[in-house]
Design a protein around this nucleic acid. Structure first.
Lengths: 201, 201
DNA sequence: CCAAGTTGTTTACACCGTAAATTTACACTG
DNA sequence: CAGTGTAAATTTACGGTGTAAACAACTTGG
């Protein structure tokens, strides 16, 4: 069978971006359904209706696709947290509680995406990298909590450290549940407990 | 090249167990060095000086080896926590603090083993399964903390839930650091903070 | 001594990520 | 308009994976 390229010669920057976006959309859905490890390059290409090697013209390799999807995941995540913050009326504690709920709900409802986001991605998240910036954006939503502590008289450094503790607890709760180490519902239970005595107004 | 089997006919139960142990020792070391995903069956077999298919006579498949190594990891982990408990003189808070330190140290010093232990292992940890029992043993060491709370007047159910919260925080802190999402040292910092206001005697 | 069964080996298959060669179709020259 | 260079997509090919199946070497029960 002869090759059947139907190109329009040297593709535009937006054509290029469009393909990348389309590929990421498809890959993201497949990853979410089966876990990133169980989706091959060939499967992604087939789902796009394109030959197995075509994606390599747009991404250096498989890892580059994972990196891109990770970034998109963090951005979606951050947007949800920000929305939860904006949609909640009340004091900082109420907003923080809503964000905590959103955090756990997102992780449990998008297990494979969350696993991909927080899996071992070799290179560290320098604030310069796109991934680092996406992570920073998600992390920044946590500052609502620290801000409340500062208003209550806590030193800034300490308040920021407390944010790290809250984050650790949320992350630990959902990953333990996602791994099957703790039974279903544990994460929400932990969240409830955390809110009870870490968010007393 | 002709096959060169030098067997001694129908191997004893302890011969069988010995091979499994030897294989797990080797596999564990290779996993620790390179990460489980980067170690193939063929590599393990080669390291054992045996042909690629021989391990399959002792383990159903690769996943069965991972499961076994996971169990051994949890047992080693539990033993360390128990040792930290036994070696610490003082009240429950001091013992709990020592165990928390041991927890974080183990995870950071055995990153790949820890990742394997708490990675997605498909089947849940029923208390009937060997893995479930190994997990339960590690988890049981946490009860020291809950016991202290109960002595301080907290209801039992609540105290056990608090153990889950502590576990989540420790697990979250180390996995965030192992993933590179938080900078080195963060887990110890979180541990310090946790101990400060969760362990006030 | 022979048939059966246990052990380890070799071989084989379908899949993977991706490097390299190949084909196609456009955008240019003349 | 013919010819050519080249970007885009394809096919092919290579070394790797997990593991099923066939096979060879041996021990043992009859």
């Amino acid at each position: 069978m002869p090759p059947t390229p139907r190109t329009s010669r040297t593709l535009t920057d937006e054509d290029l971006a469009a393909f990348k976006t389309r590929l990421c959309d498809v890959a993201e859905a497949m990853f979410a359904a089966a876990g990133a490890d169980n989706v091959s390059m060939r499967q992604i290409a087939a789902a796009l209706g394109v030959s197995p090697m075509t994606p390599y013209r747009y991404f250096a390799n498989r890892e580059a696709i994972l990196a891109e999807v990770r970034i998109r995941g963090f951005e979606r995540f951050a947007a949800l947290l920000e929305a939860a913050y904006a949609a909640t009326s009340g004091d900082a504690a109420a907003k923080a509680a809503a964000m905590g709920r959103e955090y756990v709900d997102f992780a449990l409802a998008n297990a494979n995406t969350y696993r991909l986001m927080f899996g071992e991605h070799s290179q560290e998240d320098s604030d310069e990298s796109p991934l680092g910036r996406a992570v920073a954006r998600a992390r920044a939503t946590l500052s609502v909590y620290g801000d409340g502590l500062i208003r209550a008289g806590m030193a800034e450094a300490e308040a920021r450290a407390m944010e790290g503790l809250i984050w650790s607890t949320l992350h630990g709760a959902v990953t333990l549940e996602l791994a099957g180490t703790t039974p279903p519902g544990s994460a929400h239970e932990t969240l409830r407990l955390l809110g009870r005595f870490a968010l007393r107004g």
